[in-house]
């Protein structure tokens, strides 16, 4: 299946997307069509471009080439069907703000400019916090929460967005085993309610246990599909093996503008 004849309701279709930092490409010509109602992992080594894939699809960093369609439309038109969870380390957790206020930010997208944060938003946020088991610490300043609780605050914010597609960047990074289990249960509950979730994941060991589908990435898309079909020794070797150093070397040269003949 490729982008041209993909079903229009596919949550995420990426067509020939290339992303570069400066002149150095970090993702090459990605083509991907995500299935609906599945739990999908993006797996690959450090520096493979996993987070970049999500950010570029959302237009948070510029694409050099290609496009990304959400439910058949450009992202700007369907923002409210998509919830993005950035890496936990991307914000200052000493910020003077409570878990409830962070979760309420999930409702900001629906509210539009000029509108104050209303009671509805607070109720939605509180319900989302209760769903992730943080109802009793809702009024705490976020810096007083544990790492696992902080990650769940981010998830509660995504739940408050009430989207159909969830894009999560490393939700399992530096959380304890209990939190990991509760996050997995939450993601599976989302899937059972017909939602699609794409998760940047760093632990190859748990992929088959947690996820339905997997996307192997290392600067380019190695393979994507059902976990059992994709996690083959050849694919893993292609993802984690050294064969891609050529691609990286070319990228380096492009950024340094070295000529090929030298």
């Amino acid at each position: 299946m490729n982008a041209e004849n993909s079903p229009p309701d596919s949550p995420l279709v990426i067509h020939d997307m290339t992303v570069a930092y400066g002149r150095k490409p970090v993702l090459w010509n990605i083509d991907y069509v995500s299935p609906s109602r599945k739990l999908i992992a993006i797996v690959g080594p450090n520096g493979a471009g996993k987070s970049t894939l999500l950010k570029a699809a959302l237009g948070l960093i510029p694409r050099q080439n290609g496009e990304a369609l959400f439910f058949g439309q450009p992202y700007q038109k369907v923002r409210q069907k998509v919830a993005y969870v950035p890496q936990r380390s991307s914000v200052d957790w000493d910020f003077p703000i409570s878990a409830l206020e962070v979760a309420a930010m999930g409702c900001y997208g629906r509210m539009g400019w000029f509108r104050p944060v209303n009671r509805d938003a607070k109720n939605t946020a509180l319900a989302a916090l209760e769903q992730v088991g943080l109802g009793d610490v809702a009024r705490r300043q976020i810096g007083q929460l544990s790492g696992g609780q902080q990650q769940r605050v981010f998830l509660a914010r995504a739940l408050a967005q009430d989207a159909d597609l969830y894009l999560m960047d490393e939700p399992f990074a530096a959380v304890d085993a209990t939190t990991e289990q509760s996050i997995v249960a939450m993601l599976q509950a989302l899937r059972d309610r017909g939602k699609t979730t794409i998760v940047v994941h760093h632990d190859l060991q748990t992929v088959s246990e947690y996820f339905d589908e997997v996307l192997l990435l290392n600067l380019r898309l190695i393979a994507a599909g059902a976990v059992s079909e994709v996690l083959t020794p050849q694919n893993l070797k292609a993802t984690y093996g050294g064969q891609l150093s050529i691609l990286d070397a070319v990228g380096q040269r492009m950024s340094a503008r070295q000529s090929v003949t030298s």
Partner: peptide, 9 residues
């Protein structure tokens, strides 16, 4: 608080 998330919405 969260520039990236703000951009995403």
């Amino acid at each position: 608080f969260d520039t990236v998330f703000a951009e995403s919405i």
